[in-house]
Amino acid sequence: MTGTVLEVDGLSVDIRTPHGTVRAVDKVSFSARRGRTLALLGESGCGKSMTAQAIVSLLDPTAEVAGGRVVLDGTDLVAADEQTRRAMAGPELAIVFQDALTALNPVYTVGTQLAEPFRIHRGLSRKQARREAVDLMARVGIPEPETRVDTYPHQFSGGMRQRLLIAIAVALSPSVLLADEPTTALDVTVQAQIMHLLRELRTERDMSVVLITHDLALVAEQADEVVVMYAGNVVESGPVREVFDRPRHPYTKGLLDSVPVHAARGDDLKSIGGAPPDLHSIPSGCVYQDRCPLARDLCRTCRPEPAEVAPGRTAACHFSAEVK
């Protein structure tokens, strides 16, 4: 595909637990393009954050990549050695986390933390790096950057901390920016400010943004493509408009139906019965069978692979044609 900078191909992640090894991410594939936003959408525990952590090689020690490739500008990060990965972290690939207070170091000034990428990757002097840090703070909309550069993270509000994290992430103009629930902890008016900033930076630096979120409305507004995950598997993918207008997987359909819409105020919402499966007891066959209104014998025995249902769209369902 043209403009593809990040290609994730059959990525699997295993977690070792006291009760045995479980597969948290199962053969996930997608590709992200320059200047576009791709959303990884799913509910808690679906494996979306773990996919992001695997891409940036920040998996918890109990988890490991069990297979697949993560190709960034021609380099497979899974096969690459530590040194190569480190050299690419920052100039090529960066991540913004949800919780800005724990992601920032409380004992260093924000200036020191913003200057770090320039010191490490560009070898700038303290003074030069500090100047870059001030410019960067101004760029992400922090008032009075010259004085605030010497203050500590706890002296900033939630929205301002998220701006700082974004500043650190985009410092070296990466090709791909992963944003893991970047606005979940923020109020909506602040969320709007942050998403506005991310969009500007994406266009300005021709980055690819991978937005990891559980918020369907945010996906509808911000993303070009969406990858829907359930129990570690990609169940549907494609252009956001098409997927949301006409979902081809019963889970996507169920999620969309669960969103309150004002047209039906006071009426019962359609909800998905039950709960996602425990990773220790993922059923053989389709991962969604226990909650699916279309499930039948084939679904219990044979797991559907993602198949093309329209140009640029996939769905992992034996009966995707029946999803209405």
């Binding site: 909506v188 008016t189 969320q191 709007a192 506005h196 409305a217 945010l218 509808a220 911000q222």
Partner: peptide
């Protein structure tokens, strides 16, 4: 209200960024 993302964002008015 304009800042809150919505599923049917096509037909809505300009977003007000405070």
């Amino acid at each position: 209200m304009s800042a809150a993302p919505s599923l049917d964002s096509d037909g809505r008015s300009e977003q007000i960024i405070l």
